[in-house]
Design a protein around this nucleic acid. Structure first.
Length: 721
DNA sequence: TTGTTCCAGCTTTTT
DNA sequence: GCTGGAACAA
């Protein structure tokens, strides 16, 4: 293996980071500076040059996508299978540790991972049994509180008793929730992390084992780690000085869910021998885009300090469009996107980024109306869909009859005459005798206290699960799922539902069977799990095949948060208005406002070639017309880097203003209406219309061969005939 | 058990 | 102004 393949493609700073001797290292990597590249090459370097066994390397990311990408790139670079390399998300790694050491973590071998909606259900049920009013204690808030405590590493027993009644009540709920989860072997996301931390903290032998095993520990997006994640990393690397972290304080946008930028500062204290390397050369954007982004982010205080630069040219100015309203904003954006597509851009070269999900609708409508394929990221994930959760609950219940959450979920889905009353009875029995709902159901039947009809319905359900268990025993995973989905009556249930919706659900269930078929079961997995359990964990920890992963070329719509880590040729950053972006809730809190500003920075630095910023002068919000002021972030961009696409003074008379403007541009343009031109690809044609100015100037041409097209003059190389 | 009506709420989101 | 959930009636 030639070392040069690992370091040749790197710049000086990158190479320095990759080839540094083992020590604590903080790589401050600006947007588009090759962050993942450094991580991948660092790991490759350690394996190939330092002779570290892949077995001794740990790499932690935040998303499954990032983990997958990193693994693929390492395999690609080294042409080896990175199979025994531990690369995963914090949650995935924690899960693995807990499976391997369930006993020492004081968990049952069969513990189940809950996702957030499972957690919410459990909390609702808990409040119910505690006779606590949901009005006074919104389950969402309780969930938020519990997770926040766990993210800080705080157990109920650590909280100081006393305080006001509200405080005390909250603690009672937290405590009861912990007990309930322990009793039924349920682990939520935050618990995975906290438990994994406690496992290492309280078991010297386990800790020593992993400290010895992991010669090198790498962390991606370090600025997004929360208290407990960082504490866990410190335990793991304690005394070894082998923590290699990559992050960007300017891209920390998850403070609201517990991420601590401070971890970057603490790192420097906790690892006194550390080295800091800044990656400031940007390989993504034009100089103009970088200048503007740098300028915006300098308004934040307490930065580590970092300024991106590039070899690339200035590129086009940033376009600013003041829309009349949100409709007009959408028209403008879609119009520009279509123009770029006509010019040969891929649809997926275009991204519309917004602050909040609700904003996507206008753009969707306009894209739909023009027949432009698009994809909206975010929203409901595959394994979060109700029909999928129902099917998985059957699968769970068959694997483990004491899984109360699953039991409750499917006992009357589809409806089989077991109502709230019977269920209440079972819950009471289960609580009084500390048994599972399944056992309680059997006791209830034997009591003969219910009507014959209810009893029979209950017996029917238990028999169904029993017979399904038997039937499914010998089948392959996908056949199991298929059988369960049909025999449980789920398919029949959705067939009777109102046409369109039910059909989609059935399709999703079929997709689930397909996912089971494609699921690669690793027999020698380190967690020592069976195939079904492995699949269930996968369902809980991975987003899964997001909404029909059509690889069709699509315009990309997403929130600024989900755009992190991505890049696009053309970016439309929309809704730049006070109250929307920055959001209303953050304007009077400096800390939160700075996070909004980082979000803006993230958004701007996604753009490779062209950046459009738009805002609306009037916007319907919650049914009311609002007249927001342009976002303060716009004022932070130097005017010389901006070009206004529409004069603000023309608001009152939009129609005539546009006409006047187009007349004005026609006069300036080097092209004239009716002029004959030649295009390299489309051949000869005649100019029908001219619009825009500067980089945005575009013309409509009637080509002899290919018909009428809109072309951006900045791209199109036209010869006047 | 199902359908209707009424009412609150409404950033960002991965695991 | 719309959506989802809960409460209620039939």
């Amino acid at each position: 293996m030639d070392v040069t393949t690992i370091i040749n493609s790197l710049n000086d700073a990158q190479r320095q980071a990759v080839t540094a001797p083992s020590q604590a290292m903080l790589v401050l990597a600006g947007a588009g500076s090759g962050k993942t590249r450094v991580l991948v090459h660092r790991i490759a370097w350690q394996i190939k040059v330092e002779g570290v066994s892949p077995h001794s390397i740990l790499a932690v990311t935040f998303t499954n996508k990032a983990a997958k990408e990193m693994r693929a790139r390492i395999e690609d670079l080294l042409s080896i299978s990175a199979h025994n390399l531990w690369i995963g998300t914090f949650h995935g790694i924690a899960h693995r540790l807990l499976r391997r050491h369930a006993q020492q973590a004081r968990l049952p071998e069969t513990f189940q991972v809950m996702d957030s909606s499972d957690q919410l259900r459990v909390i609702k049920r808990l409040l119910n049994t505690l006779n606590i009013d949901e009005k006074q204690w919104p389950p969402k808030e309780v969930q938020w509180y519990i997770n926040a405590q766990k993210d800080e590493g705080i157990r109920a027993k650590h909280c100081v008793e006393a305080g006001d009644t509200h405080e005390r009540q909250r603690l009672i709920i937290y405590k009861a929730y912990e007990e309930l989860c322990d009793r039924s072997g349920l682990v939520d996301f935050a618990e995975l992390l906290l438990r994994a931390h406690e496992l290492l903290r309280d078991n010297a032998d386990v800790l020593e084992f992993y400290q010895k095993r992991f010669k090198q520990v790498h962390v991606d997006e370090f600025q997004d780690t929360n208290t407990i994640q960082y504490a866990w990393l410190r335990l793991l690397t304690d005394g070894n000085d082998n923590l290699f972290v990559v992050g960007d304080d300017d891209q920390s946008i998850y403070g609201w869910r517990g991420a601590k930028i401070e971890n970057i500062y603490s790192f420097q204290q906790h690892y006194p021998n550390h080295q800091v390397i800044k990656l400031e050369q940007n390989y993504r954007s034009t100089c103009t885009i970088l200048k503007a982004s740098n300028k915006v982010i300098t308004n934040n205080s307490g930065r580590m300090g970092k300024e991106l630069w590039t070899d690339a040219g200035d590129g086009d100015l940033i376009s600013l469009y003041a829309a009349f309203n949100e409709q007009d904003e959408a028209y403008f954006v879609v119009d520009r996107i279509r123009a770029s597509i006509n010019e040969g851009c891929l649809r997926s070269d275009n991204a519309i980024l917004y602050r909040s999900n609700a904003q996507s609708r206008q753009f969707e409508e306009k894209l739909m109306a023009t027949g432009t394929p698009y994809i909206v990221y975010g929203g409901l994930r595959f394994f979060d869909r109700a029909e999928i959760k129902n099917a998985l609950a059957y699968l769970r219940l068959i694997a483990n009859r004491d899984d109360d959450a699953s039991f409750e979920r499917v006992i009357n889905t589809p409806t089989r005459g077991i109502g709230a009353k019977a269920l209440d009875e079972m819950r009471n029995i289960a609580r009084d005798q500390s048994v599972s709902l399944w056992a309680a159901a059997i006791l209830l039947i034997n009591q003969r206290s219910m009507s014959a009809r209810a009893t029979n319905a209950l017996i029917g359900f238990l028999e169904l699960i029993k017979s399904l268990s038997k039937e499914v025993e010998e089948l392959s995973l996908d056949e199991k799922v298929k059988c369960i989905v049909h025999k449980s009556g789920l398919i029949a249930l959705y067939q009777n539902e109102k046409m369109d919706k039910g059909e989609e659900k059935i399709e999703n269930l079929e997709e689930l069977v397909n996912a089971a078929k494609l699921f690669e079961f690793d027999k020698d997995n380190e967690e020592k799990l069976g195939e079904v359990d492995m699949f269930l964990s996968y369902a809980a920890l991975e987003a899964g095949v997001s909404q029909s992963e059509d690889s069709e070329d699509c315009v990309q719509l997403m929130t600024l948060h989900s755009a992190k880590g991505l890049e696009f040729k053309q970016v439309f950053l929309v809704g730049l208005e006070e109250g929307l972006f920055p959001s209303q809730q953050s304007v009077d809190d400096t800390g939160r406002l700075e996070e909004e500003r980082r979000l803006c920075y993230v958004g701007m630095t996604r753009a490779m070639q062209l950046l459009y910023l738009t805002y609306a002068e009037s916007r319907r919000l919650y049914g009311r017309e609002t007249y927001p002021r342009p976002s303060r972030f716009l004022r932070e961009i130097p005017a010389e880097l901006l070009q206004e696409v529409r004069m603000r003074a023309t608001v009152s008379r939009p129609v005539s203003a546009v006409q006047a403007k187009s007349a004005m541009f026609q006069a300036q343009s080097q092209y004239k209406l009716g002029q004959r031109v030649h295009h390299a690809k489309f051949g000869e044609g005649v100019i029908l219309q001219i619009e825009g100015e500067g980089a945005q100037e575009r013309v409509e041409i009637n080509f002899k061969q290919v018909g009428v097209k809109w072309l951006m003059l900045a791209y199109a190389k036209l010869d006047v005939l």
